[in-house]
C-alpha cells in the first residue's frame, strides 16, 4: 500500500494538515472555539509520513494535539472540523470537543491526558494478539508523555508480551515550558527502547520520507510478531502549546530559526529539485487545498450548535 503514496501525495497531505490547523485558528479569536486549542503547525511531516500504511483494522490512539494524526488515519475532515467548532454535526456531536476525537469505524481515539493513550493502544495491540490478525496499534504521543508512569507500564507490558505496538513520539523538545533536555535522564527517547525489549529509532521529523521509512519498518516488525517499536521524530512546535500561550519560555531567536525550517518548504524543495513537480504545480495544489478547506469551514460555520437539552444524554449506554 505504501508504494502508492508518492512524495507529492505526502506533500498534499501536509498541505491539508497545515491548512486544516489554520482553519481551526480562525475560530479562536471569534470565540467559536473555546478552551485551549492545540495545533500541530510545523509537525506535519510526522503525520504525513504515517499516511497510507494503516488499514481500518489498525488502531491509532492520539493526544490533545490530534487533528493531523486523525487526518493521517483517514478521519472525516468535515466531521472533525465541525466537532472542533462545537457543532452538532461534529464527529462526536459536540460532546467531545477538539481533544476527544473518536472514530470507532477507523479505530481512532484521542485523549487529553498526556501519556494516557499508550495503555489504550496496548489494549488494541492485545486485541490483535487475541484475534490472531495482523493488526497493529499505533500510539502517537509528545515528548512530555514519555516521562509518565503510564508510558512505562504500557511499554513494559508490550515488550514482555511482544505485542504489535508502534509508539510515535513527536519530540518537539518542549513539554509546555520545560525543555526535554531538562526533563529526561537519557539524551534521546529512542535509546530507552531496549529496556522494554522494543526497537528504538530517532528520525528527523521534518523529513516526511525518513518518517515514512521508519514507520513502515516499525509496522513490519510489529506485524511479524517481533514486538513494539518507538519512533522518536524530532520536530518543532511552531505555535505555543495552546492558542493563547504567551510562549515566553522559548527565545525569539530560537523560534525564528526553527520556524524557518518548515517541513512543507523542505518537501516542496525536494519535489522540485528531484524534478517530481514544478513549483507552479505545487502552488496550484496548495491553492486548491486552501479553497476546499475555506469552503468546508464556511459550510461548518452554518451548522447548528448541539441543543442544551441534550447535555445529560450519553452518560450511560443503558
Amino acid at each position: 500500500m505504501a508504494q502508492e503514496i508518492t512524495l507529492k501525495d505526502r506533500y498534499g497531505y501536509m498541505l491539508w494538515m497545515r491548512h486544516f490547523e489554520l482553519a481551526c485558528l480562525e475560530g479562536v479569536p471569534t470565540r467559536e472555539i473555546h478552551g485551549e486549542l492545540h495545533t500541530g503547525v510545523g509537525q506535519e511531516a510526522i503525520s504525513a509520513g504515517m499516511v497510507g500504511f494503516l488499514s481500518k483494522e489498525d488502531a491509532m490512539c492520539s493526544t490533545h494535539r490530534n487533528h493531523m494524526h486523525a487526518i493521517a488515519k483517514g478521519v472525516d475532515l468535515r466531521a472533525m472540523l465541525a466537532e472542533i467548532f462545537e457543532k452538532s454535526t461534529g464527529i462526536c456531536g459536540g460532546f467531545g470537543g477538539h481533544m476527544h476525537i473518536f472514530d470507532p469505524s477507523l479505530k481512532f481515539s484521542a485523549t487529553g491526558i498526556v501519556g494516557a493513550g499508550v495503555p489504550v493502544a496496548l489494549g488494541h495491540a492485545y486485541a490483535a494478539r487475541l484475534k490472531g490478525n495482523q493488526a497493529v496499534a499505533v500510539a502517537v504521543v509528545g515528548d512530555g508523555a514519555v516521562n509518565t508512569g503510564a508510558f512505562h507500564e504500557a511499554m513494559n507490558m508490550a515488550g514482555a508480551l511482544s505485542l504489535p505496538l508502534v509508539v510515535v513520539v513527536e519530540n518537539n523538545e518542549w513539554a509546555i515550558s520545560v525543555p526535554f533536555s531538562a526533563s529526561s535522564a537519557t539524551e534521546t527517547i529512542a535509546e530507552r527502547a531496549p529496556s522494554w525489549r522494543a526497537h528504538g529509532i530517532r528520525v528527523n521529523g521534518l523529513d516526511v520520507e525518513e518518517v515514512a521509512n521508519a514507520f513502515e519498518a516499525a509496522l513490519a516488525r510489529a506485524r511479524s510478531g517481533k514486538g513494539p517499536s518507538i519512533i522518536e521524530a524530532m520536530c518543532y512546535r511552531f505555535r505555543g502549546h495552546f492558542e493563547g500561550d504567551a510562549d515566553m519560555y522559548r527565545s525569539k531567536e530560537e523560534k525564528e530559526r526553527r520556524r524557518s525550517e518548515d517541513p512543507l518548504e523542505r518537501t516542496k524543495e525536494t519535489l522540485v529539485a528531484r524534478g517530481l513537480a514544478t513549483l507552479e504545480e505545487l502552488n496550484e495544489i496548495e491553492k486548491s487545498v486552501v479553497a476546499s478547506i475555506s469552503e468546508m469551514l464556511a459550510s461548518v460555520r452554518k451548522d447548528p450548535s448541539p441543543s442544551g437539552a441534550d447535555a445529560t444524554r450519553y452518560v450511560f449506554a443503558e
Binding site: 488502531a59 490512539c61 470507532p104 479505530k107 481515539s109 494516557a116 499508550v118 495503555p119 489504550v120 493502544a121 496496548l122 489494549g123 488494541h124 495491540a125 492485545y126 486485541a127 487475541l130 484475534k131 496499534a137 508512569g149 503510564a150 507500564e153 504500557a154 513494559n156 507490558m157 514482555a160
Partner: peptide, 21 residues
C-alpha cells in the same frame, strides 16, 4: 496475569473495549 501496572491494566481495558471485548 499482568505485571503490577494498574494504569496499563485499566488502559488496555479501554482499548479492548474499543475492540469489542
Amino acid at each position: 496475569d499482568t505485571p503490577i501496572s494498574e494504569s496499563a491494566i485499566t488502559g488496555m481495558g479501554v482499548g479492548l473495549a474499543l475492540e469489542g471485548y
